[in-house]
Write a protein that binds this DNA or RNA. Structure first.
Length: 278
DNA sequence: CTCGCCACCTGGGGGC
DNA sequence: TGCCCCCAGGTGGCGA
């Protein structure tokens, strides 16, 4: 999936176009994503107006007006793009292609969800979104002021797992996926293999700064695109973020020139420099 | 509670 | 050309 920067860039890309617009139709072609999409979603959304688009972790939250004036309940459409999901705005009537599962029609524009691997999620709730089971268990936001070295130091004290896997645990820290975990650790000079509990307070501070900088740089660059991510406005792929280590096994480290390594951790590829990262 | 592992799903690429 | 295996940006759920 898109990691946090891609999700945020999608959100920012939609903001100029969608909030304030009213649902004119919903087309559900595939209900079976990671979780079953409610079949009555078209009925639920009918006539509602989109108020705003929020983000929590890698979830986008589309906030809608109450369905009927009498029932003063806002509704929350919770979207996760999984590994391969993407959003784009298309003109009404644009023929759907393979893996285009859902259309939200807003009169003169249509928001289209494509997700070849169907690891994505689309859920509906009329309770506060943050209380939804998928969101209630999410960890700290890495771009928030609360994400500090002291916070990370405390959060890692009784964690024996490798720091790279802790960074990718969304119940601890959200938004750091496989690419940015490797990148952040390289920039902080910390080995991905190091047990989380064996990182000093000072290096925790350095790591939180690295995570923040890597994510912010990627958002500023428009989200990195390795394969099938597409801008929410339909533009081509976005600016490839220059990765220092990700997918560069065997190539020279940009700092010391020694060849970079690739290993497996928790079933995922990790890239690092064994000379610069300890 | 923590951790390791599996599952979910489709498609692309490399080796034979 | 085809087949088979491995790989891919995530994460919820399971048992130990």
């Amino acid at each position: 999936m898109p990691e946090l920067p891609e999700v945020e860039v999608s959100r920012l890309g939609l903001l100029p176009y969608l909030p304030g617009k009213r649902i004119s139709g919903v087309c559900l072609r595939t209900a079976r994503l990671r979780h079953e999409i409610p079949a009555d979603l078209p009925k639920i959304l009918a006539g509602r107006t989109l108020l705003r688009i929020d983000r929590r972790a890698k979830y986008l939250i589309f906030v809608f007006t109450p369905g009927k004036p009498a029932l003063a309940t806002e509704g929350f459409l919770i979207l996760h793009l999984g590994m391969s999901g993407s959003l784009r705005l298309v003109a009404p009537g644009t023929p759907a292609q393979k893996h285009d599962h859902v259309d939200l029609e807003f009169g003169d524009t249509t928001l289209r969800l494509r997700d070849p691997r169907r690891f994505g999620t689309l859920a509906w709730t009329e309770s506060p979104a943050e209380t939804h089971p998928l969101l209630a268990t999410q960890g700290i936001e890495p771009l928030s002021d609360a994400f500090t070295g002291d916070w990370l130091f405390l959060a890692t004290r009784r964690r024996s797992l490798p720091i790279k896997q802790l960074l990718m645990d969304s119940h601890t820290v959200v938004g750091v996926g496989n690419i940015y975990a490797s990148e952040s650790l390289f920039h902080a000079g910390i080995s991905p293999l190091r047990p989380a509990s064996r990182i000093s307070r000072q290096r925790c501070a350095r790591l939180t700064e690295s995570v923040r900088k890597v994510l912010q740089a990627s958002i500023a660059a428009g989200g990195s695109s390795v394969r099938d991510y597409v801008h929410s406005d339909g533009g081509a792929g976005c600016f490839q973020l220059q990765c220092a280590v990700y997918d560069r096994a065997g190539e020279p480290c940009i700092r010391c020139g020694k060849p970079l390594h690739s290993i497996r951790q928790g079933g995922r590829s990790t890239f690092y420099c064994s000379h610069c990262q300890t």
